[in-house]
């Protein structure tokens, strides 16, 4: 099934196809020796199982200025603007070199934390309208966990 190099009449007996398969296998072994998955990354992926959270509602990324906005000519260092949505609730976030600024909409009080990985949780200050700031720019992947009155919402993991 699914022969990579079908030869009419003689499937699987093409010596070139056989050599291709051998070379591919040789490359596979080369990659395993010369460019394996770094051990610390494997470990990090294993620990990520802890991020599997059935109770939280997922807020999906619906706008990312890196993808959805046109670049502004001559303007460097523009902030990254993100919007996440979970049902009726949206979270707007601006990622600046100085940290995060954001707001929960519709405005509502919420307890907000910045997750930086399976073991990293940092609370941020939010006002009664759900506006929040974090003085620490995220280093690497981050997600926001919002506890509103009734539910817990987690934004999709994203690389800042």
């Amino acid at each position: 099934m699914n022969d990579e190099n079908p030869v009419p009449g003689r499937p699987g007996t093409d010596p070139d196809a056989f050599a291709d398969a051998l070379l591919e296998e040789e490359l596979r072994q080369a990659a395993a020796v010369l460019d394996p998955v770094p051990a610390e990354l494997l470990q990090s992926a294993l620990e990520a199982f802890a991020l599997h959270d059935l109770d939280a509602r997922l807020a999906e990324l619906t706008f990312d200025s890196l993808v959805d906005a046109l670049p502004v000519r001559g303007v460097v260092d523009v902030s990254r603007m993100l919007t996440f949505r979970a049902g009726e609730t949206t979270v707007d976030v601006e990622v600046t070199p100085d940290g995060l600024i954001g707001q929960v909409l519709p405005p509502q009080p919420a307890r907000i934390e910045v997750l930086g990985g399976p073991q990293s949780v940092r609370p941020v200050t939010a006002d009664t309208l759900g506006r929040f700031t974090s003085e620490t720019p995220p280093a690497g992947p981050f997600a926001l966990r919002l506890s509103t009155g009734a539910e817990v919402i987690v934004t999709e993991w994203l690389r800042a």
């Binding site: 992926a45 399976p118 690389r159």
Partner: peptide
Amino acid sequence: GHEVFQTVWFRFAQHLGR
């Protein structure tokens, strides 16, 4: 590359049941 790798696995864990 390391950050992308982590992001992918974090998000996979998050999306598992979905």
